[in-house]
């Protein structure tokens, strides 16, 4: 029953529209205040929702994200910097160690050289001393031999002279032999 009544009412309204010559509900000005009122309510509610809650929240989330990304990038940059610093330090340490090793090797070489030189010098000295001693001994032996030769020559000459039956003065013989040996 109610729906019928409503239909009838609609019919009346439609008739009214037909009377005004407008089939467009958009041009039914009797509904304008209603729509405008509810639109203003809607717009105000949406504005409050957006400006009070949604937009600040989303804005802060976006800003936070931007901040996080920026700080992450800068942290990564820093780490990269640190890594390259560490690499430089490592290379430096390596170079230092190499230089140190070179130095130690050079020192050791110098030391060995010094020791060697010492030893060589000592050995040379010893050799020289021994050579000198030997020379002395040789000289002694030679001298001894010379004397022995003189002695033998005198004795032999005396014997020869005696054997020849000539009495010879020992002094004369010796002088003659000496002169001969010198000659």
């Amino acid at each position: 029953m109610a729906t019928e009544a409503q239909d009838a009412a609609h019919g009346a309204a439609d008739a009214a529209h037909a009377a005004t010559g407008s089939g467009m509900p958009q041009l039914d000005f009797s509904t304008y205040p209603n729509q405008m009122f509810w639109l203003v309510v809607t717009i105000v509610v949406i504005y409050l929702i957006l400006s009070r809650i949604a937009l600040p929240r989303i804005g802060s989330v976006l800003a936070d994200r931007q901040g996080t990304i920026t700080s992450d990038i800068s942290a990564a940059e820093e780490l990269k910097q640190k890594a390259s610093e560490a690499e430089t330090a490592y290379t430096q340490a390596l170079a230092d160690a190499r230089a140190e090793a070179q130095k130690i090797i050079a020192e050791a070489k110098a030391e060995i050289q010094a020791d060697l030189d010492d030893a060589v010098a000592k050995a040379d000295a010893e050799i020289a001393a021994k050579a000198a001693e030997s020379e002395k001994k040789i000289a002694e032996i030679r001298e001894g031999a010379l004397e022995a030769v003189t002695e033998v020559a005198k004795d032999t000459a005396k014997e020869i002279v005696a054997a020849m039956g000539i009495k010879a003065d020992a002094r004369t013989v010796t002088a003659a032999i000496n002169a001969r040996l010198k000659g």
Binding site: P33, N34, L39, T42
Partner: peptide, 16 residues
């Protein structure tokens, strides 16, 4: 059937 300025209508519903 009367649409007063405050009447909740289908427009009100869909705005809501």
């Amino acid at each position: 059937d009367t649409v007063n300025w405050y009447t909740p209508t289908n427009a009100t519903l869909w705005m809501g």
